[in-house]
Amino acid sequence: MTNQKYKNLTLREFDAAAEKFDDSDPSVYNLCRKDYPDLLEELLKEPCQDVLDCGCGTGAMLVMFRDACPDKQYTGKEGYGINKFSSVLSKV
């Protein structure tokens, strides 16, 4: 398989997995969600004005951060596959 075929396969697999990031499927992504409150607690200790999350997936962690600190500017970027961050924030 060529490098380009591997890349295309990876993108397809990531897109399929991203569709399930925020549902109740017992995937590794949802298992990691239990750690979000602890991560948020640590992030809130850091002084900042703006937040950039590289590799934000669907932006679930940024939504939690924004709810805790609505006065900041938030940007999420996903490097591979679909970027659902904007649509997630627009629903909240």
Rank of each mutant, 00 (worst) to 15 (best):
D50F: 02
L43P: 01
C69L: 15
S24Q: 09
F65L: 07
S24M: 10
P37Q: 13
G55F: 03
E46P: 01
D23K: 03
C48R: 05
M1N: 11
G55P: 06
G59V: 01
G76N: 00
T10D: 10
A68P: 03
V63M: 02
T2Q: 13
K77I: 08
A16M: 11
V63Y: 00
N83R: 04
E46F: 12
A17M: 04
K34L: 13
A17F: 07
L40Q: 11
L39S: 13
R66L: 06
L40H: 02
D67R: 12
L39K: 12
L39P: 13
K5V: 03
D35A: 12
T75L: 08
D50Q: 12
P47S: 05
D38R: 05
S27K: 06
Y6E: 09
Q49V: 09
G79A: 13
S86P: 01
K7V: 08
L39A: 08
M64T: 03
D71N: 12
L52S: 09
G59F: 01
E46C: 10
L11Y: 10
G59A: 06
V63T: 03
M61A: 04
P37Y: 07
E13L: 15
L44K: 15
K34C: 02
V51W: 10
R33H: 08
P47F: 06
A17N: 01
E19N: 06
A60G: 06
D25G: 09
M61W: 02
R12Y: 10
K34V: 14
C32D: 03
E42R: 08
M61K: 03
Y36S: 11
E19S: 08
L9F: 05
C56F: 03
S24V: 13
N30Y: 04
T10N: 15
E41T: 11
Q49I: 06
R12A: 15
F65Y: 04
M61S: 04
D50K: 14
L44Y: 13
V28H: 12
P47M: 03
G55C: 09
L31P: 02
G57R: 00
R12I: 05
R12F: 15
M61C: 09
F65V: 00
D71A: 14
D15M: 11
Y36L: 06
A16N: 05
D15N: 15
D23E: 06
Y80A: 03
L62G: 01
K84M: 04
D53Y: 07
Y74P: 02
G57Y: 00
V28C: 10
D22P: 05
D67H: 13
L11W: 10
D53F: 01
K20Q: 12
F85S: 01
G79T: 05
T58I: 04
G59D: 03
L31A: 11
D25Q: 14
I82G: 01
C69D: 11
K20Y: 05
N30D: 08
E19A: 15
E46M: 06
P26I: 04
L39H: 10
K20F: 08
Y6W: 14
A18E: 04
K7R: 14
